[in-house]
Design a binder for these strands. Sequence first.
DNA 1: CGATTTTGACCCGCGC
DNA 2: GCGCGGGTCAAAATCG
Length: 315
Amino acid sequence: MDHSTCLSTSLDLNLNPLLPPIDDAPVLHSPSYAQVQVGSQLSPQGTGPQLVEEVNRVRAENIRLTEMLTVVCENYNVLRRQLEDYMSCNRSPTPCNEIAKKRKAGGSNGSSNNNLPLSEKSESSSTEEDFKPREESIFKAKISRVYARTDASDTTLIVKDGYQWRKYGQKVTKDNPSPRAYFKCSFAPSCPVKKKVQRSVEDQTVIVATYEGEHNHPQPCQQESTSGSNSRSRNMNIGLIPCSVYPNSSGPAVPLDLTEPKLISATVAASQRINTPEFQKFLVEQMASSLTKDPNFTAALAAAISGRFLNQNLK
DNA sequence: CGATTTTGACCCGCGC
DNA sequence: GCGCGGGTCAAAATCG
């Protein structure tokens, strides 16, 4: 993605040149915005040295903002390359270990660790040492939370993450009246991933899905495989849409865009998806959204654009 | 009939 | 040692 693309498509500030200057804009204490107000109130007849000086200042501001945008886009490209590098580094099919998973030493089935799937048997052996340099970051990725908003009337605990799950238990926990559902990946025992799904205490329309472990296989689900209300595919959920991620930032582990657990746990699928136009567009939108939420940036950009309009009018 | 879900029972860690 | 609570098992039920 080049800079021009970024600049031309992503910054939807709703600035319409046909519209008159916004007078009821929120109070901004940015000096740039103050300059716009001064400039926009100048009458065409005001052609003194003061006006020339003002125009020059706005031009300089415009140039400065253009440079800022260039820097922002360059930073974006750098971050994107780093993300791609990270994805490719984690493309190894070796499943990562589950955190501190304690299997019963002698369970009711009398089994020992010999019954553990291969991915778990390696847990305490060399694998742990092999990944020691990156141990901390990987372990943080082992348990992740996804917040999905659903209908309050929807009683199903479904989080659309693209993987197929098999429910193996349900419990009502002490701190939450809503039942907690326990799922295993349908590829178990070869895939050790589990997830717990429960409605949020604060907001019943929000489902909190806690993932443990990482999938060692790509997403099995295809769109056409889930047609109808087949109960056996009820957990074969397709495509966690970014907007379904809980946007509230008050939570301790709100996954946003690139740290979204699905992307981390399914690095293979993610690394393929990152090159799709949809993902690129999503990244650009996220970037634009972050920028436009910054009042200083918005004010400065508005000043630059207004200055350009003013500049054109004076020509 | 096989795959999946449901749900009560059981296991086990932890705090007291 | 005991009770509590979260997590898991497994038989029965359900579904297509």
